[in-house]
């Protein structure tokens, strides 16, 4: 566990972390069970195509949940994240066999020294295109 970052040491634009998230059908089945979101577009190829999708796609909430881990790891305490919002801009198709690779980067977007909070802006892409837009987490340091 890393120590909590000191707000006075931070600068807007500073990178706080990055990671690559590997997504397979097995990940989506696990998320479907753990979250209770059992919509077949996330595990049934035939059904997904019937409703006009290119194939099985990841739950937007799976991607949202994975992306924020760079923030948790940076703060050292998941309880420090007081606000987290995203727009879902594109789906992440998940092949079988194979995997989808989602790239996550976090930078300091704004600092409110008086409130003791920092906004982290996340860039989340698949094949170079943003899959989450306006992905922002506010942490209390």
């Amino acid at each position: 566990m890393s120590a909590r970052p000191a707000i006075g040491d931070l600068e807007v634009g500073q990178q706080i972390g990055a990671r690559t998230v590997t997504v397979t059908r097995a990940h989506l089945v696990h998320y479907a069970g753990a979250s209770g979101d059992r919509n077949p577009i996330h595990w049934n190829e035939r059904f997904a195509r019937e409703v006009g999708l290119p194939g099985v796609i990841a739950h937007g909430m799976f991607t949202m949940g994975q992306a924020v881990n760079v923030v948790t790891d940076w703060t050292g305490d998941p309880g420090a994240i007081v606000d987290y919002g995203v727009r879902f801009s594109r789906p992440v198709p998940v092949p079988d066999p194979g995997e989808a690779l989602v790239e996550v980067t976090g930078v300091v977007g704004a600092i409110d020294a008086e409130a003791g909070t920092v906004r982290v802006d996340l860039t989340v892409t698949f094949e170079g295109a943003k899959v989450l837009a306006k992905a922002q987490a506010v942490v209390r340091l």
Binding site: M1, V21, H27, H30, Y31, G33, A34, S35, F62, G65, Q66, V68, N69, T72, D73, D77, P78, G79
Partner: peptide
Amino acid sequence: AVGADHPAHHDVEAARALGHPDVVAP
């Protein structure tokens, strides 16, 4: 399921060390 491997989600003692009464939700 969301790859949240921080100990405070899994280990009660780690969560308590951060001031939480039990494991914290992602």
